[in-house]
């Protein structure tokens, strides 16, 4: 068990180090640097390179960044919010994004389990419908939703069917409607609902047909808790796999819906070559993905006795 925990922790640490290195590499390979974006910056390039650590080889910068991160120091922003500590820049935004991601995962899990519980073992039109609803990518769904909601609301306002809602017009007015929309679209779009539904349905069918469920049924006891308990490991794995997709989708949704979360900051800091901020967000994204995977591993280990046996072996 201890060995398994160590393995999970090491795997998570490697994911984080790899993600930070990958973002650093991608930004270094992209044409230009933050000094290029400063008019007249060329005149003081050596000074700025030394100040921002750009004069160091990439590997050194990566190791320095990891070292700083291990001490809880994410550095200071160089171009997105010049001079501001990265933690201050991304702190509140990251908490918001984390909330939206967790809400989206919870919604995705609930809807897929509820639908799969109904459709498993049946021929249902719901599968076809889900495929149609879920086929569009999240950015397209977001644009369509915003346009439709605004058009219908404005039409009703002009005809005096209703007054001007506080959240109108999307996505400009700050309101919780934008966040709710983001959560729903993440849980539904880019194939999320179809994929999760089919996987959960398949797991559910397998569990319902298993010997231990048959035995419980033969004893006349309720199978609900048994099925639900055994559904946890595959569901945890599915959601852990989906966590990274959701994080990617949220970056796009935050831009479209003008939500100021970590994804939006990542986008803008990458455009402005703000390495510390981009790597700070990358670190959080990696922690999110690694955390989700670790949690799935722990869930599987805790629920499935076979996993515990293999771990102790």
């Amino acid at each position: 068990m201890v060995r398994r925990v160590v393995r999970i922790v090491v795997s998570a640490a490697l994911t984080v180090a790899g993600a930070v290195g990958l973002v650093l590499l991608m930004m270094a390979l992209a044409p230009g640097d933050p000094i290029d974006l400063i008019p007249g910056g060329e005149a003081i390039r050596p000074q700025l390179e030394a100040e921002w650590g750009l004069d160091q080889p990439l590997v050194v910068r990566w190791l320095q960044t990891l070292g700083r991160m291990a001490r809880g120091d994410l550095g200071t922003s160089i171009s997105y919010r010049p001079g501001a500590p990265v933690l201050e820049v991304i702190g509140a935004a990251s908490v918001r994004s984390l909330g939206w991601l967790l809400a989206a995962l919870l919604l995705a899990a609930t809807q897929s389990v509820a639908l799969a519980w109904y459709t498993a073992g049946r021929s249902s039109w719901i599968r076809g419908l889900l495929r149609w609803v879920s086929v569009a990518p999240v950015f397209l769904l977001a644009h369509l939703s915003v346009h439709s909601i605004n058009t219908i609301t404005f039409w009703g306002m002009n005809l005096s069917y209703w007054g001007r809602p506080e959240w109108f017009a999307l996505p400009d007015q700050p309101s919780s409607v934008r966040a709710v929309l983001a959560v729903v679209l993440l849980a539904v779009g880019s194939g999320a609902v179809t994929e999760l539904h089919l996987e959960v349905e398949s797991a559910l069918t397998r569990i319902r047909a298993s010997g231990y469920v048959d035995a419980a049924r033969a004893r006349g006891s309720s199978t609900f808790r048994l099925v639900a308990w055994n559904l946890l490991p595959p569901l945890a794995s599915l959601l852990a796999n989906r966590a990274a997709f959701f994080a990617g989708g949220l970056v796009v949704l935050e831009r479209v819906l003008l939500l100021n979360g970590a994804g939006s900051i990542l986008w803008q800091s990458a455009l402005s070559h703000d390495y510390p901020v981009a790597m700070g967000v990358a670190l959080l994204a990696a922690i999110w993905v690694a955390g989700a995977r670790s949690l799935a591993d722990f869930t599987r280990t805790a629920v499935d006795p076979r996993m515990r046996e293999s771990a102790s072996w």
Binding site: A30, P31, G32, D33, D36, L37, L271
Partner: peptide
């Protein structure tokens, strides 16, 4: 079609 950073590097530098 260049980003601002690409523009600065390729065209100006």
């Amino acid at each position: 079609f260049l980003t601002i950073a690409e523009w600065k590097e390729r065209v100006w530098r």
